[in-house]
C-alpha cells in the first residue's frame, strides 16, 4: 500500500500547512542563534575555503598573487603533513573501535542494573563536564614514571616501568589510552539511550524462541543497536580526527616528545601560528573537512538502511 506523496507540505506530526506566515515565529526564535552561527561559523568557513586557494597570501597586507592549488600542492609535498595524516588516522583507528567495544560492554552492563542507573549515568557524565586541563593534570600524574598508577599497575604483573610520556615507543599508546578514556562517557550515554529504546518484547520473544543471553546479545541487541553504534562511531571518528587538546594537556603544547604525535590539527596550528603560512593551514583544514564530510555522508546513508521501524 504505497500512499501517493502529498502536494501540500505540512509540519511533522500535525497537519498544519507550512506557509510564509507560519514560518515567521520559528524564524524569529532561531534568529539569535543563526546570527551567531553565521558570524562565527559560516563566515569563517567561507573565508577559510577561499583562503585555501589564495596563493602567497600575506596576513598583514591581505595581498595574494591569485587563486590556485598551490597550497594544496605544498602540503601534499610536505612530509610533515603526510605524517600528520598517518598518525591521526592511526590514532582514530585505535581509539574509536576500542572505546566503542568498551562502552558497549559497560552500557550493556549498566542497562541490566536497573537500581543505580541514575547514579551511574551521572558518574559517567563527569569526565564530560570536568575541565580538560584538570583531567590532563591527573593523567600526567597517572603516567608518572615513579609514582604513577599505570606503572604501579603493570608492576603488579612484573612488567618494567615505562616512561609513558617521554619514551617515543609509548607515546602513541599513552595518548590512545587517554583518548579512549575521554571518549567513554559520551559513547556510553548514547549507547544506553539506544539500549533503552529497544522494546523488551524482542528479548522476551527471543527467550520464547529458545535463545540464551549470548544469542540474544548477538542476534537481537547488537543488530537493533546498530544505528546507534554507527552514529556514535562516526561522531567519535570526527572528534578523533580533530585530536589536539589531549596533546596539549599531556605534553604541554608539544606534539609528543620527538614530535611524533604530529596530528592534522597540530599541523594546522603549527602552520598558522608558528610558521605564518595561512594558506597551507587553510588547505590542511579543507582536507580534514573533506574526510569528515565523507564520514557524515556515510553515516546518513547507513542510518537510512538501518531504520527498521518505518
Amino acid at each position: 500500500m504505497t500512499e501517493k506523496k502529498k502536494r501540500v507540505r505540512t509540519y511533522k506530526d500535525t497537519d498544519e500547512k507550512i506557509t510564509a506566515k507560519s514560518l515567521i515565529k520559528p524564524f524569529l526564535f532561531s534568529l539569535p542563534f543563526m546570527v551567531g552561527l553565521i558570524i562565527f561559523t559560516v563566515y569563517p568557513f567561507i573565508k577559510a575555503v577561499l583562503l585555501s586557494f589564495m596563493e602567497n597570501y600575506r596576513f598583514l597586507s591581505g595581498k595574494f598573487t591569485g587563486y590556485g592549488l598551490g597550497n594544496y600542492q605544498a602540503i601534499i609535498a610536505d612530509p610533515n603533513f603526510i605524517n600528520a595524516l598517518k598518525s591521526t588516522t592511526k590514532y582514530v583507528l585505535i581509539v574509536v573501535p576500542i572505546s566503542m567495544a568498551l562502552s558497549l560492554l559497560i552500557a550493556v552492563g549498566l542497562n541490566s542494573v536497573k537500581k543505580l542507573q541514575g547514579l551511574f549515568q551521572t558518574v559517567y557524565f563527569l569526565p564530560l563536564v570536568t575541565s580538560s586541563t584538570a583531567i590532563g593534570m591527573i593523567f600526567r600524574w597517572l603516567y608518572d614514571y615513579d609514582y604513577g598508577l599505570f606503572n604501579y599497575f603493570i608492576g603488579l604483573f612484573g612488567i618494567d616501568r615505562i616512561h609513558w610520556l617521554a619514551d617515543v615507543r609509548f607515546t602513541m599508546a599513552s595518548i590512545c589510552i587517554y583518548g579512549i578514556w575521554s571518549m567513554l562517557p559520551f559513547t556510553i550515554i548514547l549507547l544506553l539511550a539506544g539500549l533503552q529504546n529497544i522494546d523488551p518484547v524482542y528479548y522476551t520473544a527471543a527467550r520464547a524462541d529458545g535463545a540464551k543471553s549470548r544469542d540474544i546479545f548477538f542476534n537481537i541487541t547488537i543488530p537493533l543497536l546498530m544505528p546507534t553504534i554507527i552514529l556514535t562511531s562516526i561522531v567519535n571518528m570526527m572528534s578523533a580526527f580533530k585530536v589536539y587538546d589531549s596533546l596539549f594537556v599531556l605534553y604541554g603544547g608539544k606534539p609528543g616528545p620527538a614530535f611524533n604525535l604530529y596530528t592534522v590539527i597540530y599541523y594546522l596550528y603549527d602552520m598558522f601560528w608558528n610558521k605564518n603560512k595561512l594558506g597551507n593551514a587553510a588547505a590542511s583544514a579543507m582536507v580534514l573537512f573533506v574526510i569528515i564530510a565523507v564520514f557524515t555522508l556515510l553515516q546518513n546513508l547507513i542510518s537510512k538502511k538501518t531504520n527498521y521501524y518505518k
Partner: peptide, 13 residues
Amino acid sequence: VGLVFQNYALYPH
C-alpha cells in the same frame, strides 16, 4: 512451546 505475542514482536531487523 511456540509463542505468538499480542503485537507479534517480529524482529524488525
